[in-house]
């Protein structure tokens, strides 16, 4: 974690740099409610290409609902979402994947009966096209496609250092590894925007350090834009370029980690109470 802190320290002009970057996604005045319960009220923010954007806030602030809106699982009653410069119509989650939005989940949502390898291969579902008749006979295009995607998946397995559990059913893996497999599955979708919902929840310090390293590597090596929800403030402040703070479904602050840390609303709503 120290290494990360120095990383950040050597980039004093991070804010200036992000300002010049291109906008990847923008949410404008989005509101979402279930029956009478308002989950999100009139939230607007943007995510720039190549940055790590953190979404924080106390429990029930609407963070996960926000991610669900971004990847098309929930449809907001009001507001617009602009993806890569174009206003997005109402889409289904699998369409979000083919547009380049992948995510992981707060409670691990892996396919428990399948092996690690199959789970990650499932992440390539939208990329695989072979006809069912070739599949039936394991022949020609089907076989070539299977091998081609297997190579990509093996690269991800190497990258995340999970070679040893390739054949293990994920239901049998410890929690920390399951989180890592989930990240691998999201990476297999080759996303432009990666949504991480509490990637470090329930981890010990060592696992958190590993996970932080992977997130930074993904961001820097693949240039993937990352939006993450996290409760560990140390991690958030170290990893993220900019932070948006939600409370009771409303946005109360937005800015660099330093700005947010100093914001009185945030301290009142969240940090001040928590510490």
């Amino acid at each position: 974690m120290n290494a990360l802190a120095t990383d950040m320290a050597t980039e004093p002009d991070a804010a200036a740099e992000t300002a010049s970057r291109e906008e990847l996604l923008r949410v404008d005045n989005v509101s979402l409610s279930f029956g009478g319960v308002k989950a999100i009220t009139d939230i607007s923010f943007d995510i720039l290409k190549g940055e790590i954007r953190a979404i924080i806030g106390p429990n029930g602030a609407g963070k996960t609902s926000m991610l669900n809106v971004i990847n098309g699982f929930y449809h907001p009653q009001q507001g617009t979402i602009t993806w890569q410069g174009k206003e997005r119509r109402k889409i289904k989650p699998h369409e979000a994947v083919s547009q380049g939005i992948a995510r992981t989940f707060q409670n691990v949502a892996l396919f428990k009966g399948m092996s690690t390898l199959d789970n990650i291969m499932a992440g390539r579902a939208t990329a695989m096209k072979a006809n069912i008749f070739f599949q039936m006979f394991w022949y020609g295009p089907a076989m070539r496609e299977e091998i081609e995607h297997r190579k990509k998946v093996e690269d991800i397995i190497d990258f995340l250092e999970i070679q040893a559990i390739r054949r293990t059913p994920v239901g049998k893996l410890p929690y920390g590894l399951q989180k890592r497999v989930e990240l691998a599955r999201a990476l297999a979708m080759e996303p432009d925007l990666l949504l991480l919902d509490e990637p470090m929840a329930g981890m010990n310090l060592e696992e958190k350090e590993d996970m932080s390293r992977f997130i930074l590597d993904v961001n820097q090596e693949f240039g993937t834009t990352i939006a993450l929800i996290e409760h560990d403030m140390g991690v958030v402040m170290d990893l993220s370029d900019r932070v948006v703070v939600l409370d009771y479904g409303k946005k109360i602050a937005d800015g660099t980690p330093e700005e947010v840390q100093g914001n009185q609303d945030v301290i009142d709503a969240y940090l001040g109470v928590a510490h």
Binding site: F73, V97, A102, F105, A122, A125, T126, M189
Partner: peptide
């Protein structure tokens, strides 16, 4: 195994 997650990974 998990239909919602399947949909969210693009199936």
């Amino acid at each position: 195994d998990m239909d919602i997650a399947a949909e969210l990974v693009g199936i």
